[in-house]
Amino acid sequence: MKNIIIITFSLLLFVLTIALMNWFEEEEAKVKAINVLNNKNIQKLQKIAQINLWLDHDIIPAISDDQNDSLMTDKNMIYFFDDNKDKYNLLVDKYIYKDDFAKNIDLSYSISKGGRDKLKDFIKIEYDDGFLQFRELKIDVNGIVGKIQVVQPHSEENNLSQHNGEDDVPQ
């Protein structure tokens, strides 16, 4: 009788331990899957931190707060024109117009013959609130002429000026 009790108990213990083993195995697999996911999230966060560092260092400081202000964005372009028009004989080719995420103003410039130094300055010129895209540069015996496009980034929600083309450009 004693042996039968021991046998029964041992077999029950065996069945229980096998069930327990399977349960531990399943739970371990679940935990491992969670760990893999968490490790991936850690990698993502590390990547985000790297990107944040780059944004904080290189991008966000370059984005002007004026972008949200429609009036300021227009004025910035106009200030640029006024500040440089005499030096580089700037003329408005196409007054303030909008495309995708930017406001633009197309200008033409001319530098007289012998003004190579002026050209050097002009070619290095920067528009602090946006971008300057050279469209045309012509150097010949008569001098240096060309076109540039002043690009002013702005926020979409704002009410933008919709002046269009040469008709509105004061010459």
Partner: peptide
């Protein structure tokens, strides 16, 4: 056999634990 099985089962369960 049952005692051996119980030990084996216990060992395997402990290992998995």
């Amino acid at each position: 056999a049952s005692i051996v099985l119980a030990f084996i089962g216990s060992y395997l369960a402990y290992d998995k634990f």
